[in-house]
């Protein structure tokens, strides 16, 4: 079986699920189970006694074989992201960190300079660093060089559901990378996840599309199938495109004309 390799970890599932925006913890847990994911993102938040049931550590730790990937959401600078990473590792015990630094709440585009600086520090400290980045092949290569375990270019803006609008740039990143490329953010439908996998992504990260679906567990299952289908199709070898028709049946002439 082809496994997804991230740092020293291997995963049979290539769907990474975000845990935000679900209507309830139980809906989120159902979706995680239905997706078969082995890696989920979580975010640090201040403890609030009135919302103690929102703490996800307990419910997620009951799912066997699940690894947590805390994110640094809320960080606007490299130093804030590094601080969040240290706190998250203390709490999760997981070496994974999704570096997510977006200073502008209106577009949530990742800051490439602060992201690079944070990744350099965290990779040197032994984290399995998974940066959320603009679909920039130069930045992706620089992040590979400082020891990131993957790069996660955005398909489109976080939560926008605009799909793979960066497809051509993501293809370049895939062609140039020696580490897994994972599309993160913007995917709306399983067909887009499938397309990302066919294109050569090693995994996809989905959150909003599952969380806000009418039936999150069913959508999670649909994404899991699409990711598998795309990966299998890629390995099977997609046929070349042709500008002209190429017949699939023998065009013999026995039906036409008198013999």
């Amino acid at each position: 079986m082809d496994l997804l390799r991230l740092g020293t970890y291997t995963f049979s599932s290539r769907l990474i699920l975000g845990t935000g925006k679900f209507s309830s913890t139980s809906a989120m847990i159902e979706a995680v189970r239905a997706s078969g994911t082995q890696l989920v993102t979580v975010a640090l938040r201040r403890f609030n006694r009135e919302q103690a049931e929102d703490d996800l550590f307990g419910p997620l730790s009951e799912i066997e074989g699940l690894t947590l990937m805390p994110n640094t959401s809320g960080a606007a600078t490299a130093s804030e992201a590094v601080k969040a990473a240290h706190i998250s590792r203390e709490l999760s015990g997981s070496p994974f960190i999704k570096v997510e630094i977006h200073p502008n709440p209106h577009h949530l585009m990742p800051d490439p300079i602060e992201t690079y600086e944070a990744c350099k520090i965290l990779a040197a400290e032994g984290f399995i660093v998974m940066p959320y980045i603009p679909a920039d092949p130069v930045l992706a290569k620089r992040l590979e060089e400082v020891g990131c375990s993957s790069v996660m270019p955005l398909g489109s803006a976080i939560g926008s559901g605009q799909g793979l609008s960066t497809a051509e740039m993501v293809k370049i990143i895939i062609r140039e990378s020696n580490i897994p490329v994972i599309v993160d953010a913007g995917l709306r439908s399983p067909s887009e996840a499938c397309a990302a996998m066919e294109m050569g992504c090693e995994a996809v990260l989905v959150n909003s599309a599952v969380a806000v679906a009418r039936d999150p567990a069913a959508m999670a299952s649909a994404f899991a199938k699409a990711v598998e289908a795309g990966f299998e199709a890629r390995n099977a070898g997609l046929m070349p495109r042709s500008s002209a028709a190429v017949a699939t049946s023998p065009l013999t002439s026995f039906l036409g004309g008198a013999s």
Binding site: G18, K21, A43, R45, R46, D54, G159, N207
Partner: peptide, 10 residues
């Protein structure tokens, strides 16, 4: 003092 937990996030 900050007391922090994990909540949902993408």
């Amino acid at each position: 003092v900050e007391i922090l937990v994990f909540a949902g996030g993408g």
